[in-house]
Simulated scan of single mutants.
Amino acid sequence: MTEALSSLAEAFKNVGVSRAYGTPVKVVGEELIPVALVSFGFGGGGNSEAEGADAAGLESVAGGGGGGFVLPLGVYCRNGSGHVAFRPNMIALIGTLVPLVCAVGFTARGILRTLRR
């Protein structure tokens, strides 16, 4: 189990700002720097002294898993004159706002129902 955790720690050692900001790319005279929201997590566990482990012939039980996601937020662009601007990814913005708008709507509905009583 210790080897697995150390290998996971080594794999995620360089994760940080370099994952959120991509390498600059030149497109039609503009320099684009991609920006993303990066999230990941992992975990594991085990029990070497489980009840009945000796009877079943098992010495230890262990498991683990992980996952993550990347949400492209947009790009920073720099044109030939050096002007820098952020251009959001509208599809990701709308996709992120839909659950927020639904949550606000359900909350407002609950508050209005409570006030009517």
Rank of each mutant, 00 (worst) to 15 (best):
G95P: 03
A4C: 02
M1W: 02
R113E: 14
A53P: 00
V101K: 07
T23V: 04
R78N: 03
G67K: 02
C102L: 14
A85Y: 01
K13E: 11
R113Y: 03
G29D: 01
T114D: 11
G66S: 08
E3A: 08
L5D: 15
G22S: 08
A20F: 09
G44S: 04
V15I: 14
I94H: 10
A53N: 11
L100T: 04
H83I: 03
A85N: 10
T114H: 08
P24L: 09
E49W: 05
G68D: 06
A103V: 13
R19A: 10
R117M: 07
A55H: 10
R87D: 02
F12V: 15
G105F: 04
T107P: 00
F12L: 10
I91Y: 00
G45E: 08
R19G: 06
G64V: 07
L97I: 07
G41M: 05
A11G: 09
R116M: 05
V35T: 06
E31V: 08
T2S: 11
A56Q: 13
G82Q: 10
S81D: 14
L5G: 06
I111A: 10
L8S: 06
A55Y: 06
P88V: 03
V28N: 15
N14E: 13
V27I: 13
V98D: 00
G65D: 06
G46E: 00
A62G: 10
E49L: 15
L8H: 12
N89G: 03
V17M: 12
E3R: 10
V98K: 05
P99S: 04
E51H: 12
